[in-house]
């Protein structure tokens, strides 16, 4: 977990309203300042996660996202802008985050997470937020997060629905416990509104803040599911898989 760093006067002024939160206080803010988070990718979900973490005063973000901004990103990828069409997504994200929080340290990587780079990317962060669309990326991140004993927030969406859980390696189900195999029917492109990805993104950011700040009750061991079509929310209990190929040995 992160080493707390003392706040300067500007930071105390910037984060005054959240420092008023009783079980967070200045000690929690110092933990966020000393913390680093890997966000992959910074699309519909990850844009909002990164923006909220930047606003909350997390000290360092590692952003991994390949490709260039295109029109179909702009309904939900809130760190991408119309004037950046055709230019690298991760550069747009870095620029927008720096406008909000110039103190933020950003490691911007123009690649998606893969088996080849997951170890290095995860090693640069205290916590991971998985916002990736492809299960092979998610499995690579999950494996490294478990191996490196780092919490990972798993979030997902479809249509007006979403799922989110927090994985604490060795204590809770990991992604491979829940989905042991590559889902055969999953496709990278799917129906969704930006307001849905934004809702899940805010929740994922709050989960990260709680875990890093060591306060509140996270979704460890629970899967929150919701459908914004009829506003049905459920907090469900999920099980570790004793035969999990990733986490059964720990």
């Amino acid at each position: 977990m992160p080493q707390p760093l003392p706040l300067n006067d500007e930071e105390k002024a910037t984060y005054e309203w959240q420092i008023w939160v009783d079980d967070f206080r200045e000690a929690g803010q110092e933990k966020l300042k000393g913390a680093s988070v890997l966000v992959s990718r910074v699309g519909g979900l990850g844009s909002v996660v990164a923006y909220e973490l930047a606003a909350a005063g997390v000290g360092k973000l590692v952003l991994a996202h390949a490709g260039k901004v295109k029109h179909s990103d702009l309904n939900r990828q809130l760190l991408m802008t119309h004037d950046w069409l055709g230019k690298p997504r991760v550069e747009s994200a870095e620029r927008r985050l720096k406008e909000l929080n110039p103190r933020l340290e950003i490691v911007a990587v123009g690649e998606n997470v893969s088996e080849e780079n997951a170890e290095t990317l995860v090693s640069q962060a205290d916590l991971v937020v998985d916002c990736a669309p492809l299960f092979q990326e998610r499995f690579a991140m999950n494996r490294q997060a478990v191996l490196q004993n780092k919490p990972i927030i798993e979030c997902a969406m479809y249509d007006l629905e979403a799922q989110i859980t927090t994985v604490i390696p060795g204590e809770t189900p990991c992604l491979a416990c829940l989905f042991p195999d590559q889902p055969p029917e999953w496709r990278r492109e799917f129906p969704v509104f930006g307001a849905v990805s934004g809702t899940v993104g805010c929740m994922a950011a709050m989960e990260a803040i709680k875990v890093l700040g060591d306060f509140g009750e996270s979704l460890a061991g629970s899967l929150l599911t919701f459908d914004l079509r009829d506003m049905q929310f459920a907090k469900r209990r999920v099980l570790r898989n004793p035969e999990c190929r990733v986490c059964s040995g720990i």
């Binding site: 990736a132 299960f135 998610r138 990805s197 469900r236």
Partner: peptide
């Protein structure tokens, strides 16, 4: 019985 379908980010 709820049948939860695998979904992801994006």
């Amino acid at each position: 019985v709820t049948l939860l379908s695998p979904i992801s980010g994006g």
